[in-house]
Amino acid sequence: MIRNICRRLGESVIVLLGVALMIFVMLRIVPGNPVATMMGEHADLAVIERMTAELGLDQPVYIQFIRYITGALKGDFGTSYSLGKPVSFLMGTAFGNTLKLALFAALFAWALGIACGISAAARKNGLADHLFMGVSLMGVSMPIFMVAMLLQYVFAYHLHWLPISGINDWRGFLLPAVALGWNSAGSISRLVRSTLLDILQEDYIDTARGKGRTQAGVLIFHAFRNALLPVITMMALQFSSLLSGAVITETVFSINGIGRLAVQAIAGRDIPLLEGTALFTTLVVILGNLAADCLYDILDPRIRKEV
């Protein structure tokens, strides 16, 4: 198992380096000198040249890349052109908000997904089954900004229950968390349902029923316990996608998170900031997926014993 984890870790490092290179090259082939763009039309040519040299942008691309990577390893992602602060500082502040948002969204998605999945599986083709599965399909088909704006319109504007935007207290997180977690809740409930339905065919379920367990007891103590493995893996995977998928939600609800930072970077033609946010988010996702993989190994006694 340890060897497996190490191998995956190695693969992840290679993929991450590839991602860094790809993003770096993509952002370097944008036409025009970023310094000139940053300083506006009326900047002095000599000043532009001096700045270009100071930022190392006159060096060949591969030297720039090596410098960037060595810097990034030390936590230095350069300085934001548009905001004038170190990218790592900006990302640190923003990541806190994104993490909180993703946690709220995950709690919502896990709770709702598992509850709906179990009640749908309890009576296959029953009313709850059709209702939940229909709603979950609709959830997956709705653009996230639609969900966000609908929630804003109904609960904040019409009913005045919750703030329209901003995250001054926990109430501010509720609507964004629901908007962000909506899709995940749909996928989790579908997975819980289908896994449970498979498990309910097993012999040991019949045995449990034969012993006189109630339907609820069978579902929760016999079936759901065995369904946990794929569900937990899915939950971990979903969490990293929530962390990375907050771009739209953060924009609609004006939350200063990593995603909104990336949008601001594009608006301000701010290459270091865009690069930093893209790379950092990918790192988080890769780590999340790695954790999900390892979790599976640790939780599954069959794999655990193999080693």
């Binding site: 693969e11 991450l16 590839g18 991602v19 990375s244 739209i248 990336a262 949008v263 893209a278 990918t282």
Partner: peptide
């Protein structure tokens, strides 16, 4: 393909559209 799939798709789309 691994590299392309590792970058969250929305972010990848944003970076490419920026370029």
């Amino acid at each position: 393909a691994d590299i392309m799939l590792a970058i969250p798709s929305m972010l990848l789309a944003m970076v490419i559209m920026y370029t």
